[in-house]
């Protein structure tokens, strides 16, 4: 397959809502390719289609027309449960609002994706501890989200996203609820995961300084890719 080298390929992807006159095109024929190990920021004004693109990338949504292929799989044509399986195996999610289960400890939150994978309880606990260590939250395993700061909650969410050792991390405004200092901490953590684990990251943001951490920035306007720029100062190894 031609897209074999790419993790993610959009081939003339359309996403439309509504009927007739009222039909709106959130994505209007997007072509896009992302390789393994890339750290991509997706930017654009609201309504530009960046969130729709992210949902399709994360296998949460399917295109109306065109082909979305993920790891060489035609993910856009898979049914709900198969996409759920794909997400569970290869995709980790980090959201703006953290989206942790309330009144559930950090460790239990991190274990959650492993439950749906059928991992045994003891192994789950070990993997969760490792993931929490990777995000620098040792000693907070038994705290509930309410007992953690925003930055710490986002770290738990990142631990939950990486506990399955995914190929792709999808982050939707991961720093949107954080102050500047916390924002930089989280971005450094994501950078570290990208560089050390080779984790592919796609991140929606509207803050330029956050996008700075990424090595490539794709800008959406009116459902189309308006610009796609790689960071110049990154030296290729």
């Amino acid at each position: 397959m031609a897209s074999g080298a790419h993790l993610i390929t959009f081939d003339k992807v359309w996403k439309s809502y509504g009927q007739g006159e009222a039909r709106i095109h959130a994505l209007a024929g997007v072509d896009l390719a992302i390789r393994r190990g890339e750290f991509v920021a997706i930017m654009g004004p609201s309504g530009s289609g960046k969130s729709t693109a992210m949902n399709i990338i994360g296998c949460l949504d399917t295109p109306t027309a065109g082909t979305y292929s993920f790891m060489g799989i035609d993910a856009g044509r898979l049914d709900r449960n198969r996409r759920a399986m794909l997400r569970n195996l290869y995709v980790g999610f980090v959201f703006q609002g953290y989206n942790l289960l309330a009144r559930t400890t950090a460790a239990e939150n991190v274990e959650l994706p492993l439950i749906y994978r059928g991992v045994a309880s003891r192994e789950r606990r070990d993997l969760a501890m490792q993931a929490l260590a990777q995000v620098g939250l040792v000693g907070r395993e038994h705290h509930t989200p309410a007992e953690l700061s925003g930055g710490q909650q986002q770290r738990v969410a990142i631990a939950r996203a990486i506990v399955t050792r995914p190929t792709l991390l999808v982050a939707d405004e991961p720093t949107g609820n954080l102050d500047t200092a916390r924002t930089h901490e989280i971005m450094e953590l994501l950078t570290k995961l990208n560089e050390e684990l080779g984790l592919t990251i796609t991140m929606v943001t509207h803050e330029a300084d956050v996008a700075e951490y990424a090595k490539r920035t794709i800008r959406f306007v009116d459902g189309r890719v308006a610009s796609d720029t790689a960071k110049l100062e990154v030296a290729q190894p």
């Binding site: 949460l60 709900r80 569970n88 999610f93 959650l112 749906y116 994978r117």
Partner: peptide, 16 residues
């Protein structure tokens, strides 16, 4: 609903 959303996003099937 949000919890269900999280669970579905991280890979829960309908049957789960």
């Amino acid at each position: 609903t949000r919890e269900i959303g999280i669970r579905l996003a991280i890979g829960a099937h309908e049957k789960h």
